[in-house]
């Protein structure tokens, strides 16, 4: 018997859009962070999770990366890098946290911040995403766990990170579906995972492991 509505796996294709906005120093970064589209804030805090990394980057947050490498303000870089993305359920809140962190730093330090070296300005981008069904559908929990290994990283990214924060669904799509399908405990356990501390491959494996343990109980 099906557990409720089936779960349809979606995927997305992303095109990088350029805003033409740039920052050469922290004052300019602050000014632009206040006004760029929300999709740009999401892009610079998230798209590194989709890139292939040969070495784990120090910061996935590109505001932090640039503040450290280009402007050499490492203390602020670490503070930006430590902003807990999982603690927000809207881009508005996330933008405010980034804004406050930079503004607080600038208020404490009366010297003007350094200019980034030539060619290392921060360029604000955003993504244009085309969301499409993958054709994969799960009708119940064990079917869901069977299908997960065939789900691509970008599909996982969409359902777990993008749905929660960019689309402001408050939680990830998996947890939401599991709760409605009569598995609120598993939904909550999966919601407690921090996807920002693992690769997407690790995230997939962890969800499968938790799901199998839940069925086994």
């Amino acid at each position: 018997m099906p557990d409720h509505q089936p779960f349809k796996f979606y995927t997305e294709r992303r095109l990088v859009a350029l805003t033409g906005l740039r920052a050469r120093n922290l004052e300019e970064l602050l000014k632009e962070v206040e006004q760029v589209p929300g999709s740009s804030i999401f892009y610079h805090t998230h798209h590194q999770y989709l890139s292939q990394h040969f070495v784990k980057p120090r910061f996935y947050n590109e505001f932090a990366q640039w503040t450290g490498h280009a402007v050499q303000e490492w203390m602020l870089a670490e503070k930006l890098g430590a902003i807990d993305l999982l603690s927000f359920t809207s881009i508005r809140q996330l933008r405010e946290a980034i804004r406050t962190t930079i503004a607080t730093h600038l208020a404490q330090d009366d010297t003007r911040s350094r200019e980034a070296p030539a060619g290392e300005d921060f360029h604000f981008c955003k993504s244009k995403s085309f969301v499409m069904p993958t054709g994969l559908v799960a009708h119940n929990l064990s079917d869901f766990l069977d299908k997960l290994p065939h789900v691509t990283n970008i599909s996982l990214f969409f359902h777990f990170l993008e749905a929660r924060l960019r689309l402001e669904r408050k939680t990830n799509d998996f947890s939401q579906w599991l709760s409605k399908a009569g598995h609120p405990g598993l939904g909550a356990t999966i919601e407690a995972l921090d996807p920002y501390l693992m690769t997407l491959d690790e995230l997939r494996n962890e969800i499968i492991r938790l799901g199998q343990a839940y069925i086994g109980d």
Partner: peptide, 22 residues
């Protein structure tokens, strides 16, 4: 090639950052 195709699609959906397609 894929990026050019996506730009063609973007022209048909100029106002949305997230475009839902079936």
């Amino acid at each position: 090639v894929k990026d050019y195709v996506l730009v063609m699609m973007a022209l048909e959906h100029p106002d949305e950052d997230v475009v839902h397609l079936e």
